[in-house]
């Protein structure tokens, strides 16, 4: 019984991990059809920002929940203004440019922090569940993910800003003709996507540890989650995150973590073969 609860919590954690690390990418991809290959590096930058703040003696929760998203949001803003905005509508060029940016970020972080693995201590201690001892920080990540997704849903669904954003996403020409400048909307969207990625990086860093190259570990999973999810930001990431997280952990527990990853990738291939437009291209078509 305890073991079943542990398995359930680990599944929830894996779903949260996938959703959290890919939602920044989903915002940018879903709203702008821009594939940001520097997404993993945004996550990594969030982690390093948290690390730098923690070493400077700043409260770690403040660092990961406030400073990391703001810092990476500013980086995202600069990237959008200086690079991405010149390349809208040119998907291949954008991918190439953002890939170049990712190499640049890895290089810069290596120069500043060195290329050795570093860690941040987890600020929450473990807890006892029956005869099992579990990481309390996993619960924190699950909680943060639920709060973040709920906030995003409320903003997109019930606020003026969300309405405009959804409008621009469905039809930029009409949004433009109603007096909303799509360029401003894109700029803000990209910044918001980067900020959410930074938040994810800050929150996940204590569990995953940090290397300048650790962006690569996030980006593969983030991509399959977002592409399989399809264009709707929240429903897409949630539906694919739940499917992948569940299969990954169930197989991990039944066999081992390697088989878990394989099962997840096989499922992604099958789903994309059946639904090339992603899950939300077939089901829940008018969701956010």
């Amino acid at each position: 019984m305890d073991y079943a609860a542990i398995v359930f919590l680990e599944i929830l954690y894996m779903i949260s991990f996938l959703v959290l690390s890919s939602v920044g990418l989903a915002i940018v991809f879903g709203m702008m059809r821009v594939i940001n290959l520097a997404h993993g590096e945004f996550v990594m930058l969030g982690g390093y920002t948290t690390l730098a703040c923690h070493s400077a003696g700043i409260n770690i929760f403040f660092a990961m929940l406030v400073i990391a998203p703001i810092t990476v949001g500013i980086v995202g803003l600069l990237v959008e203004r200086l690079v991405v905005r010149w390349l809208y509508g040119r998907m291949i060029d954008t991918m190439l440019a953002t890939w170049g940016l990712s190499l640049l970020f890895v290089g810069l972080v290596t120069l500043i922090f060195g290329s050795s693995a570093v860690g941040i201590p987890t600020p929450i201690s473990g807890y006892q569940l029956g005869s099992y001892q579990m990481g309390g920080y996993n619960l924190f990540i699950i909680g943060i993910t639920i709060v973040l997704i709920t906030l995003m849903w409320i903003v997109l669904r019930y606020t003026r800003v969300g309405l405009v954003a959804r409008g621009a996403m469905q039809n930029p020409e009409v949004a433009s003709s109603l007096g909303y400048n799509p360029k401003t909307i894109y700029m803000l969207t990209f910044t918001a996507g980067a900020a959410v990625s930074g938040l994810a990086g800050g929150v996940l860093a204590p569990l995953t540890g940090l290397l300048p190259s650790s962006g690569g570990a996030f980006i593969a999973k983030a991509f399959i989650t977002v592409i399989t999810g399809g264009a709707s930001i929240i429903t897409g990431v949630l539906s694919s995150g739940i499917l992948f997280g569940a299969i990954n952990q169930v197989v991990s527990f039944a066999a081992n973590p390697v088989m878990g990853e394989i099962a997840m990738l096989v499922l992604a291939i099958v789903l994309l073969r059946l639904m090339p437009q992603g899950i939300t291209g077939r089901f829940f078509r008018n969701s956010t």
Binding site: Y3, M14, S131, G209, A217, F253, N256, P257, V258
Partner: peptide
């Protein structure tokens, strides 16, 4: 005995298995 490729970074299920 559990083996892990060099890029595995999530050990949640393993830690539960060890406790079992």
């Amino acid at each position: 005995t559990s083996f892990f490729p060099l890029d595995v970074a999530d050990f949640g299920s393993t830690i539960a298995r060890i406790q079992q």
